[in-house]
Design a protein around this nucleic acid. Structure first.
Lengths: 233, 233
DNA sequence: AAATCCAAGTTGTATATACAACACAATTTA
DNA sequence: TAAATTGTGTTGTATATACAACTTGGATTT
C-alpha cells in the first residue's frame, strides 16, 4: 500500500493541528499555498483539505479560507427537543423574562462562530425561561442583522426567539454542541442556582439556506433539567 | 443557490435506491456510464458517486464497481455511542482502561431502570476511555445477564462495550438523557478533573427486540469535551 | 466623507487527459 | 490440460486548465 500525495498533505496539516501549532478557528494554509509548498496541483491539495473537512477537522468558507474546527465537538446525531413545547406538554405554565434586547458588538468567540470580524454589530437578546415560575433555561442569542432586521422589534414574551427565527429564516441546519460548566455569578442570578453548580451549556449555530442566522448559548440548571434524546430503529 | 450537475446525478442514483429499483448489493451504474448518460465528464460523475460513498449509500471496489450498501446496517444511531470512531476520525489515538468487570447486585436507581427488583444480579463494567491519553469518558454499564451471558468473558481493550453489545443483541432503541453534575471523588480519580468540576452525565437505556439490554452511565469532563448534535433539514 | 469599483485571493464546480491498480474473462502459449 | 498473456472495464490518483461565486481591502469616483 503506497502513500499518496494528498495523504502526505493531509497528514501534514493534521499534525499541525495535533501539535497545537494550529488551534481551533485558526486559519489553515489555502489550497494554492499547499499546492506550491508540496509541488502538487491545486486539485491534489484540495483533495487533502476536503478529506479533513469530511473528518470534521476543518471548516471551509468560500472566499475566506479554511479554518480549524472546534475540535472538542464529537460527531453524533442527538435530537434536542424544544423547551417551550416540553413545558407545555407537561401541562405546566411557560413564561419568559426579557432581560435585554439590544445591539451588541460581537467579539472573541461569538464573532468567530458567526464568521464576523471583531467589533461588528449583531442583535443580542438575553432571556430566561420558566417552568411554573422555576427558571429552567437562560438563553443568550446573537443574531445577524442583515438576516433578521426586525429582531429587536419583537416581543419575546409572546413568541419565543426560536419560533420567530424559524418563521423569518427557514432553518436549513442546526449545529449544537453540549458541554457542562460551573455556574458563574451571572448564572447564579439568572437561574437561581448555587455557586459552582454544574449546568448544561448548549451552544447552537442555526443556518438558513442563505447562511448563518444566529449563534445561541442556552444554559440549563444541571440538576433541575435533563435533555432527552431517544431514537428507535 | 443553483443545483450543480453532480448533485443531479447524486439525486438520480439516490432516488433509484430509495424507490427500490436498486436493492442492497445491486450494482450501481459506473462512472463512465453515468458520465455518458448525463453528458458530463467522468470526474463529475465520480464526484456524485463519492458523495454517495461518504453518505454510506453505496460501497465501491476498485476494479469491480459500485454497489448499493447493506441498508440494514446504515443506521445513523450506531454512530452515537461509538466514541472510538469519533476519536479515530479526528486522527487521534484511542485507548481504554478496564477498572472493573464483574457481577453486581443492582439496587436503587439502577434496578428501577432495568425493571429489576432490589438485589438482583447484573453484569457490571467500569471503563475509562482516552483520547490521546487524556480521559474523555468514564463508562459504567449494567448489563442484563440473560441477554448477554458472555459479557464478563470479553476483552474490552480490544473491542468497545458498545460494539460488542451491538453485535450480540441488535439494538432496537436507545433512550438517553443528558444532565450536568459536579464531579465527586470517584469522578475526579477516573477523569483527572478538579473536585466539583462540571461534568456531562449521559444516562442511556438500550433495548433490543427482546427488551432491555443495558443501562449505561457515561460521564464526560465538561470543559474538555463537547457532545455534538447537528441535523440538516 | 461616502459610495462605488476593482483587483487579488479563496473555495466550488467542471472538463479533458493520463496513468496506476485491480478484477475478470477470453485468448494464447507451454 | 494448465499456465501465462492479453484485453476490457472499473475505480483511484494526479495534473492542467477554466470559470463561477464569494470575501476582502485598497483605489477611485462621486
Amino acid at each position: 500500500m503506497s502513500i499518496t500525495r494528498y495523504q502526505v498533505i493531509r497528514t501534514h496539516v493534521l499534525s499541525l493541528v495535533e501539535a497545537g501549532q494550529l488551534k481551533s478557528f485558526d486559519r489553515v494554509p489555502s489550497e494554492n499555498e499547499l499546492a506550491e509548498q508540496f509541488s502538487v496541483s491545486r486539485m491534489t491539495a484540495r483533495k487533502a483539505l476536503q478529506s479533513l473537512l469530511d473528518s470534521g477537522v476543518i471548516t471551509r468558507v468560500r472566499g475566506k479560507g479554511s479554518f480549524v474546527a472546534d475540535l472538542q465537538v464529537t460527531g453524533s446525531s442527538l435530537r434536542i427537543t424544544n423547551i417551550a413545547e416540553d413545558v407545555r406538554a407537561k401541562g405546566h405554565t411557560f413564561s419568559s423574562v426579557v432581560h435585554s434586547l439590544e445591539e451588541f458588538n460581537a467579539s472573541g468567540d461569538v464573532a468567530r462562530r458567526l464568521l464576523l470580524s471583531d467589533g461588528e454589530a449583531v442583535f443580542y437578546s438575553d432571556i430566561v425561561h420558566f417552568d411554573n415560575n422555576l427558571p429552567i433555561q437562560w438563553e443568550r442569542r446573537y443574531v445577524l442583522r442583515e438576516q433578521v432586521p426586525e429582531y429587536l422589534a419583537q416581543d419575546f414574551n409572546l413568541r419565543t426567539t426560536h419560533d420567530y427565527l424559524a418563521q423569518v429564516a427557514p432553518l436549513a441546519a442546526v449545529r449544537s454542541s453540549i458541554s457542562a460548566i460551573n455556574a458563574d455569578a451571572k448564572a447564579v442570578e439568572r437561574l437561581d442556582v448555587v455557586p459552582q453548580e454544574a449546568c448544561l451549556l448548549v451552544e447552537r449555530l442555526t443556518e438558513s439556506r442563505d447562511g448563518i442566522v444566529a449563534f445561541s448559548q442556552l444554559i440549563y440548571p444541571g440538576t433541575r433539567h435533563k435533555l432527552g434524546a431517544s431514537y428507535e430503529l
